[in-house]
């Protein structure tokens, strides 16, 4: 009765092959990025690429320095974090610690729902509503600037940071709170001095993933940030982050040209940055789970 291939082993190998194909696909992204981007460094040195402030890819004597683009990305991200961290973490604390069961049952799905609004809608909203409004309100030359981009991106990332922090808060064991309350602390003191420090690394994970999301956001910054490749000196100048440079210029770059390679090299930089952020988040959240004694 013994057959060469039992039905079971066939199923197992089918699943194995599909899973493996999946992983190949995902690993392929990394490989392709580097394959298309690395040839640039035969023509432009890595140092010039990272530290040059002039980005003139289509000039007769082209220059590929991404420092001003990188500065634009960091500037917008920093601004967005000022908006999104207090709002996101504050909202998570409210939902997890203060809201009653009914409020919680409404607020949690609502936040999840708002996390699904596509970035193009945020970009559109920024372009037609927020930018003209800020221009009139603050008397600035253009509403399409780093400030508007930061504001919109910040609000966009709030649901992400909020749900991740909320998860972290819900992992804090009830016994911590009970012990603190039993010692006579008020609920507010318990929140600030016990729950928040206990959930600290979990919330940092949320913040890092928020940064990573904001930095990789493309359509919103493409539409709202103004698009000038200069090192910004104030929040009210137009900037050109890395992502919007790729999106704006890839349509014109001929395949295989230096410009094309330079855009892939920018993608490599973005990939490396988000990779670092994600690894940091992973390490932090593992430490967090160990600290609170959670298995998975």
């Amino acid at each position: 009765m013994k057959r060469l291939f039992s039905k079971e082993s066939v199923y197992a190998s089918v699943f194995g092959i599909l899973a493996f194909a999946c992983l190949i696909f995902l690993a392929g992204i990394t490989l392709v990025l580097f394959k298309e981007g690395l040839p640039l460094f035969a023509k432009v040195s890595l140092w010039d690429f990272l530290s040059g402030t002039a980005w003139y890819p289509t000039h007769e004597d082209p220059e590929f320095g991404i420092l001003s683009l990188l500065a634009g990305s960091l500037w917008v991200t920093a601004g967005a974090m000022l908006v999104c961290l207090p709002l996101g973490i504050g909202s998570a604390l409210y939902i997890n610690e203060i809201a009653g069961n009914t409020q919680k049952a409404v607020l949690k799905p609502l936040v999840e729902l708002l996390a699904g609004i596509p970035s193009i809608v945020f970009g559109f909203f920024g372009m037609v509503v927020v930018a003209p409004f800020l221009q009139r309100l603050l008397h600035i030359p253009t509403g399409l600037c780093a400030f508007t981009a930061s504001l919109i991106l910040g609000i966009m990332a709030v649901p992400t940071v909020c749900s991740l922090s909320e998860d972290a808060l819900s992992y804090v064991p009830a016994s911590y709170r009970e012990a603190s309350l039993a010692l006579g602390a008020t609920r507010w003191e318990t929140l600030i001095k016990v729950v928040l420090p206990a959930a600290g690394s979990g919330i940092s994970t949320a913040a890092i993933l928020g940064v990573s999301r904001v930095m990789g956001e493309t359509m919103t910054v493409l539409m709202v940030s103004g698009g000038a490749a200069i090192i910004p000196h104030s929040f009210f100048q137009p900037v050109r982050p890395l992502t919007s440079t790729i999106a704006a210029e890839m349509g014109e770059a001929a395949v295989g040209s230096t410009h094309y390679q330079a855009l892939f090299a920018i993608a490599m930089v973005l990939f490396t940055l988000t990779f670092i952020f994600n690894i940091a988040a992973e390490i932090l959240s593992r430490r967090y789970r160990l600290k609170l004694g959670i298995q998975r």
Binding site: G28, I29, L33, S212, G216, I246, L263, L270, T274, F275
Partner: peptide, 18 residues
């Protein structure tokens, strides 16, 4: 799992380039 988490965080424009 780490690999998948990382890819979930890669900017969407990079997927476009791929």
């Amino acid at each position: 799992r780490i690999g998948i988490n990382n890819l979930a965080g890669v900017p969407s424009v990079v997927f476009g380039l791929f």
